[in-house]
Design a protein around this nucleic acid. Structure first.
Lengths: 138, 138
DNA sequence: GGTTGACTGATAGTTACTCTCAAGATTAAT
DNA sequence: ATTAATCTTGAGAGTAACTATCAGTCAACC
């Protein structure tokens, strides 16, 4: 059993956020000890993990809550839960594509600056005026 | 030359966000026409692109502004700009790793639900109690 | 027995949008 | 020529999701 602090360290999520999530109803299953302290079981960590997963892909908190609530209801909600997972996965794949593109732009920029520094070249940018994307583009 | 609406469509960013970015000083170079309407040149789009890139990786607005300002100053700021790009790239790579992991979890979940639906299996989850991660884990 | 440290809930503050709206200009239709 | 529809603008309010601050509780150690 883990305290909120331990969970925060293990899952790399701030205590604040975990409490915020708890207050948002994301962990209705986490028990408290005799001092009203939240004690997370190993199994609870799996729930934290899925919440983190959904959130990290940008699923809004309202939908995360919906998913949790559906799990509690039971079998009859499997189709809706499946749909949520599918939608989330599609979104994640979209993000992957976007991220790949942005990475290649960053890579280009990195090399551009490396060249500029290595060769002690001029930064061919005339403020507000005739900057050329292929020369500098920022 | 493009209006803010056209830029919004081309770059897949809302007009609202573009105005917000403009107000934040991200586009100090964009000219206005005689009616005070912003007119983006093709070159300006390159700037929008790099702002979008930085933001999509989670670079905070303050740093984006810093980067833009450095570009305006000129050559002497190349090392700091290079550093910003490097840091951003490293962050993007980190995100890529994270996203890959989350995708594999989502993939697992997807298959899990597919099985559940295909075989009309029971959802072996006893609310608040003995849920097993490997059986359901949400 | 007093201080330390972890926990609690309540509440205020922050970031980055996101939306609403009134005012001014342009085009299209009456 | 006037009206209506459409677009743009800035100002400002609203929202989501944290993030930080604070006062208060409680067990544990010196």
């Amino acid at each position: 059993m883990y305290t909120i602090k331990e969970v925060a360290q293990m899952m790399d999520i701030s205590e604040h956020t975990l409490r915020f999530w708890a207050k948002s109803g994301f962990f209705p299953f986490v028990k408290r000890n005799e001092n009203n302290i939240r004690m997370f079981s190993d199994n609870d960590l799996e729930w934290v993990k899925i919440v983190k997963c959904l959130r990290s892909v940008g699923t809004e908190n309202k939908l995360v809550k919906r998913y949790i609530d559906l799990c509690i209801v039971g079998d009859s909600t499997i189709p809706e839960r499946y749909e949520i997972i599918q939608t989330t996965k599609a979104k994640a794949q979209e993000q992957m594509k976007e991220l790949t593109q942005q990475l290649s732009l960053l890579d280009y920029k990195e090399k551009f600056y490396q060249n500029l520094i290595k060769n002690n070249l001029e930064d061919s940018w005339n403020p507000m005026n005739k900057m050329q994307p292929e020369d500098e583009a920022v």
